[in-house]
């Protein structure tokens, strides 16, 4: 069996928000190329914190962050990480700050040093890929919740990331928008980790499910074995078959 190197490797990560108990304790997490990982855990168990540590927005109080085969410690180290990993924020309003959709989507490519023409071309291509044709001149704050979510995904895909971190992407989406998002994720052929609370979403988009407990990541065999689709009255409640 070939021994694969993880593209993201977290070792012994500790993190503690000021004035509260440690949220991540001695966390180990490896992500390999081609992984499609679902992350499910109760609110406040540190999922978003974990994403922010990978992006270098938060610095762990101890532990080793190794991404793309390099140790990442300083702000400078993470500039390269941010070019290659795309993070979809939980709240789309955090992500969309430009007046028009086109300006927002081209913000990333422009920061990567693309020319205006290239940035516009990439943005339009990305919007079309997401089925958002003719969205270029739409005003970002006038978009609906679902449209905002897809446009913020476009802002990230426009940077052509190698890995996607999606923080509750299915949140606040109606079923039509959700199935569109599932189609997009399945057609991407990219490594990603997504946080969600919905198992039917996982079953269609991920190959592995992890959970978090006591500041650690666990491969959730229980949950993993349980994926099946059926409907009956207590389908949403935990139950055994």
């Amino acid at each position: 069996m070939e021994l694969k190197q993880p593209i993201i490797s977290l070792e012994g990560i500790h993190y503690c928000y000021p004035g509260s108990r440690p949220i991540l304790k001695d966390l180990e997490f490896n992500i390999f190329k081609g992984d499609r990982i679902g992350l499910v855990a109760p609110n406040g168990s540190g999922k978003t914190t974990l994403f922010h540590i990978i992006m270098g927005l938060l610095k762990p109080s101890s532990g080793k962050v190794n991404i793309f085969g390099k140790d990442r410690r300083t702000e400078q180290d993470f500039i390269d990480v941010r070019r290659r990993i795309g993070l979809l924020f939980q709240d789309a309003d955090d992500q969309l700050f430009s007046p028009t959709v086109l300006e927002d989507v081209s913000f990333g490519p422009l920061n990567l040093g693309k020319s205006k023409e290239e940035a516009v071309a990439i943005s339009i291509k990305t919007l079309e890929f997401l089925g958002l044709d003719d969205f270029e001149d739409r005003i970002t704050y006038k978009l609906s919740g679902g449209e905002k979510r897809l446009v913020s995904l476009a802002t990230i895909l426009a940077m052509e990331p190698e890995i996607l971190l999606l923080d509750e992407p299915g949140n606040a989406l109606d079923s039509a928008m959700k199935s569109k998002l599932i189609d997009v994720l399945n057609s991407l052929n990219i490594t990603y980790v997504l946080i969600s609370h919905e198992f039917d979403f996982f079953s269609e988009t991920t190959d592995q499910i992890f959970s978090m407990e006591n500041g650690k990541i666990l491969l959730d065999d229980e949950v993993y074995l349980h994926i099946h689709q059926h409907s009956h009255k207590v389908g949403k409640q935990p139950h055994e078959h």
């Binding site: 992006m55 927005l57 941010r82 070019r83 940035a119 940077m159």
Partner: peptide, 13 residues
């Protein structure tokens, strides 16, 4: 933070 994640370096285009 979201801007940093998209490669913002203090320069607006």
């Amino acid at each position: 933070q979201a801007m940093l994640c998209r490669g913002f370096k203090g320069q607006f285009h």
